[in-house]
């Protein structure tokens, strides 16, 4: 799941300042799950912005709110077409993908980001999210006992822990587990420590030239042999 957090109010108020009618657009998928931009957050933000406007008494904004099931596919945005005609800007509480898809779908209207898209991860418990995947494009979890050193080691190194690990935690953040200690313990438990003793050559960053694209559909012509 993609995890994000809502931008600070000051920044949101700054980016919407030039626009009178602003549509607060939520996303019903990842942003709902991570509590950054689901229907409730949209409504909360709407309320908070209205309070700000009422208290500063210099407001000109007219807010509306709407949440689509997913912002990252054009088809989900069709239901927005009418509403978009009636606003001057959209503040999207979708992830960075959502913001761009909305912008691409509605080329004539400014689309502003309301959240900072942070990472791909999981909920550790209610209200706590942890990063788990860096989308490196070259998954090596088979060698590291299902624990990703690229994401979870602050240095993303491949051949074992640095000397900064202490009490099983990372030198960069004492609350963060040292990924390599976790990997070592799990490999030991799986009796696969030989995987750690192996030398791993430097990463191949060529697998992530940006922007990336994955093509699943085969390059076939319809109507010939294949029907």
């Amino acid at each position: 799941m993609i995890v994000a957090e809502q931008k600070p109010m000051e920044e949101i108020r700054r980016v919407i300042a030039p626009y009178e009618r602003v549509l607060l657009l939520g996303c019903g998928t990842c942003m709902t799950v991570c509590g950054a931009g689901g229907e409730r957050e949209v409504s909360f933000l709407n309320s908070a912005l209205r309070v700000a406007q009422a208290k500063s008494s210099d407001g000109i904004h007219n807010f509306s709110e709407y949440t689509v099931k997913r912002q990252c596919d054009f088809e989900f945005l069709d239901s927005l077409a009418d509403k978009v005609n009636e606003v001057d800007a959209i503040l999207s509480l979708g992830c960075g993908i959502g913001v761009q898809v909305v912008a691409e779908r509605f080329p004539d209207i400014p689309v502003l980001p309301g959240v900072n898209t942070s990472f791909m991860g999981m909920a550790k418990e209610w209200g706590v999210w942890d990063e788990r995947c860096a989308a490196c494009g070259d998954c090596r979890l088979a060698e590291t006992a299902g624990i990703c050193p690229i994401t979870r080691c602050t240095k993303g190194i491949l051949n074992g822990p640095c000397a900064g690990t202490k009490n099983g935690k990372c030198e960069a953040n004492k609350d963060m587990d040292c990924a390599w200690i976790l990997i070592y313990k799990r490999l030991e438990r799986l009796q696969q420590l030989d995987k750690m003793r192996r030398y791993y050559p430097p990463r191949n960053f060529r697998v992530i030239p940006r922007p990336r694209r994955i093509v699943m559909k085969a390059d076939v012509e319809p109507g010939e042999d294949n029907g």
């Binding site: 709902t32 799950v33 949440t67 909920a123 209610w126």
Partner: peptide, 13 residues
């Protein structure tokens, strides 16, 4: 049900 994102918040809280 169509809005439910199965985020598990209810289950956790």
């Amino acid at each position: 049900q169509d809005k439910c994102a199965t985020c598990l918040t209810c289950l956790r809280v």
